[in-house]
Design a protein around this nucleic acid. Structure first.
Length: 370
DNA sequence: GAGTCGTGGAG
DNA sequence: TCTCCAAGACT
């Protein structure tokens, strides 16, 4: 797979690290090599762009400056700090790992890659990143950048969407990585992948390592990396209920597992689950919803369509389209059938909301202020 | 091993 | 509007 001589490997390391020393990005988590700083930044950066992460990272460090403070944090405050970043299980795993560090490791970090992977939320990439950056271990940190950069450098044709492909790249990188400066080597590859070797609009001709880039030299770089396509999001249509009383708005806590787990949201009702057949009009769907609500609770809701466009929100694998309906209800109505709570608007700022919940609230507020 | 899990930006 | 991408992990 790789036919580089020892001499070429050393030349590549020298070229890459010299470029990195002159051009590395000045990022908040690069002020030192503290494993806590490296860890938090790596988790936040998963599937998330640098510019998005920076303000979250800075707020997080002020609020939770140590492993200990993270381990002892209130879940609501933790989720509020993570609000808007997405992939919320990252935050929960973060706290679980902090508690593991306190309870099982007496607050002392393991430095071995395999041991690091025993911590919640730390997989092969993040373990490699922490081990190399914080503890100077000569191990690969194979993320999307590494896949992209090395597939182009070496014309590796394996599909990077396949889990088994990781070990191909780990093997190659473990041979090429600098044994003296493994952390800088891995970070240099990331900076390269974010500048001269991005997914699109890359400027390989200006890249400091273009002489080592076989696919560029062969004029076939557009072919790399090889990656199979993902499925498109499935449309799912809901009614979103904005129910108001003198106690606030009615929220429902989402199940502990699945999408947006544990978040408080306006109650959502799947339209297709409500429809007896596919030809039902929206008006009759609303009537069916009122009827279902009545049979489950004994409460008579009169639902009115909110004069706004449906709220649209796309996840990785689902595209939600939410039609907002509003109603008033007495605060002393018996809602015991329903895992819900009244939340006053004064508490909104202390309650973690998903982006789609914020969109619903915004659409409703705008419509009712007209 | 394929599906699941958020959000924002770019083209 | 659609599609893909951005420092992945877990089931």
């Amino acid at each position: 797979m790789i036919n580089w001589s020892e001499e070429k490997v050393r030349a590549f390391q020298k070229t890459l690290l010299n470029w990195y020393d002159q051009n590395k990005r000045d990022l908040p988590w690069r002020q030192d090599h503290d494993p806590y700083h490296v860890w938090i930044s790596e988790i936040m950066l998963q599937q998330t762009q640098v510019q998005t992460v920076i303000p979250y990272y800075q707020r997080f460090m002020k609020q939770f400056p140590t492993v200990q403070s993270l381990a002892n944090a209130e879940e609501t405050e933790l989720m509020k700090a993570w609000e808007g970043l997405g992939y919320y299980s990252r935050a929960r795993n973060l706290q679980r790992a902090a508690q593991q560090l306190v309870d099982d490791y007496q607050g002392h970090w393991p430095t071995d890659v395999h041991e690091l992977q025993q911590l919640s939320g730390i997989g092969p990439y993040t373990a490699g990143a922490i081990a190399s950056i914080a503890f100077n271990q000569p191990v690969a940190a194979v993320d999307g950048n590494a896949f992209r950069v090395f597939s182009r450098l070496l014309e590796i044709d394996d599909d990077i969407a396949k889990p088994q492909t990781r070990k191909v790249f780990e093997k190659v990188i473990n041979r090429i990585i600098s044994k003296e400066r493994p952390g800088d080597f891995n970070q240099a590859i990331m900076d390269l992948g974010a500048s001269y070797m991005t997914a699109t609009n890359y400027e390989t001709a200006k890249s400091p390592v273009k002489a080592f880039n076989q696919s560029y030299l062969d004029g076939v770089e557009a072919h790399y990396p090889v990656k199979t396509k993902k499925k498109r999001p499935v449309p799912v249509d809901y009614f979103g209920l904005v129910i108001h009383s003198n106690q606030g708005y009615l929220f429902e806590k989402r199940p502990a597992k699945g999408i947006l787990a544990g978040f408080w949201m306006f109650p959502l009702f799947n339209k297709s689950a409500l429809a007896a057949d596919e030809s039902m009009t929206e008006t009759s769907l609303i009537q069916a919803l009122e009827k279902q609500f009545h049979s489950e609770s004994g409460l008579s809701l009169h639902l009115t369509k909110v004069p706004s466009k449906p709220v649209s929100h796309t996840f990785t694998h689902q595209k939600w389209q939410i039609t907002l309906l509003s109603s008033r209800l007495s605060a002393d109505a018996d809602l015991s059938f329903f895992s819900g709570n009244w939340i006053p608007t004064s508490e909104f700022e202390n309650t973690p909301f998903s982006k789609v919940q914020s969109k619903m609230w915004l659409a409703y507020s705008n419509a009712s202020n007209k």
